[in-house]
Amino acid sequence: MPDATAATAAIELRDATAVSGEYEVFKRLSVAFPEGATTVILGSTGSGKSSLIKMAAGLLPPAEGVVLFRGQDMGRFGRKEELAFRAASGFVFQDAALWANTSIQDNVAIPLRVHQPKLNQAELAEKVRATLSRLGWTEGLALRPVDLSSGEQKLVSIARALVHDPSLVFMDDPGSSLDEDSMDKLYEVLSELKSRGKTVIITTNNSELAYRYADCLGVLKSGALLAFGRYEETVAKAESELDVTLARLRARGDRVGPKPSAGQAEAGSEMSQRSDV
């Protein structure tokens, strides 16, 4: 299991401050997201989760402080480094953020067109189809986002973030708008990402998702990171102000294993069964 404090950081925020207009979302926040681990940041609505994950993904520049990607200051990235980072990462937006004037096929294909320009049309279409089918989507590729429900849009957004097989995946509240069947698909995808050693950073208020997949867990409240570390340590540390969030997780008891490295799919499934107990 990756050590939240000792492992190499894929992404690190150092004394980072986020502002939105006149409002300070968080101030001088420092956190390191370990390489190869799934990190879940739990927090209620308005706690600053989206700002935190967007800053970690280089979509929201810090007003103060720095954001590092594998030790390099993202604020100093040139065009080449920026493109390399984008090729290595995928981002799932809280509200899907699909391109409205573009078909589902093209929404998912654009990352491939940008990062793998040598793919021919047939190869590109096959990759899009394969990625969408992992999420249970097999038809209606010519539809526009407006024709889909919010849950369906979310699934397409997840496919768009994964289609170019990034090593680093950011997910801003990936479970919002998803029905139970779609959540199962999401869990399958997360199990697969874990089994392949991808770095996954998730912000959510879904404790079930944290229980199943978090190697590292953080709790964000009103722009302050109240706790951050390995899942078990963070849950065990539940203090008064974290009781509501973490007591729920502590009550679930031990997990099957934080990282299903052997027989991954089965482990993910077993973990899922335990969580239902």
Binding site: A57, R86, A97, L98
Partner: peptide, 18 residues
């Protein structure tokens, strides 16, 4: 403006399009 409000611009940035 509509694309900004719906985070489509951020989505372009996220896939590496300036």
């Amino acid at each position: 403006g509509t694309m900004v409000v719906h985070h489509e611009i951020e989505a372009y940035m996220a896939v590496g399009l300036n």
